Simulated assay, not measured.
Amino acid sequence: MSQMITIDTLGDDRQFAAYCAAPEGAPRAAIIVIQEIFGVNAGIRRKCDRLAAQGYLAIAPDLFWRLEPGITLDPDVPAEFQRALGLMGDFDQDLGVRDIEATIRAARTQIGGGKVGLVGYCLGGRLAFMAATRTDTDASVGYYGVGIDGLLGEKHAIAHPVLLHIPQDDHFVDAAAQQRMHDGLDEHPKVTLFDYPGEDHGFATEMGARRSEAAATLADQRTADFFARTIG
Rank of each mutant, 00 (worst) to 15 (best):
S2F: 04
Q3W: 10
L10M: 05
D12R: 01
R14V: 10
A18F: 09
C20E: 14
A21Q: 02
A22S: 15
G25I: 05
A26Y: 05
A29S: 01
A30G: 06
E36P: 09
E36K: 02
I37G: 06
G39H: 03
V40C: 09
N41V: 05
N41P: 11
G43Q: 11
C48Q: 01
A53Y: 04
Q54W: 10
G55L: 04
L57C: 08
I59S: 02
D62Y: 12
F64M: 00
F64N: 02
E68K: 13
P69A: 05
G70L: 05
G70N: 04
V77A: 10
A79I: 04
R83Y: 00
G86C: 11
L87Y: 15
G89V: 04
V97F: 03
D99E: 03
T103M: 02
T103H: 06
T109I: 15
T109C: 12
K115D: 13
L118E: 06
C122V: 02
L123G: 09
L123D: 02
G124H: 00
G124Y: 04
G125K: 00
M130E: 14
A131D: 06
A132V: 00
T133K: 09
S140C: 12
Y144K: 07
V146Y: 02
G147P: 04
L152W: 10
D169G: 14
H171W: 14
H171Q: 15
F172C: 11
F172R: 13
Q178F: 13
R180C: 12
H182A: 06
D183Y: 12
T192C: 10
L193Y: 08
Y196V: 01
Y196L: 08
G198N: 03
G198R: 00
D200M: 14
D200H: 14
H201P: 10
G202L: 05
F203H: 02
A216T: 09
A219V: 06
A224M: 10
A228Q: 13
T230R: 09
T230Q: 12
I231Q: 03
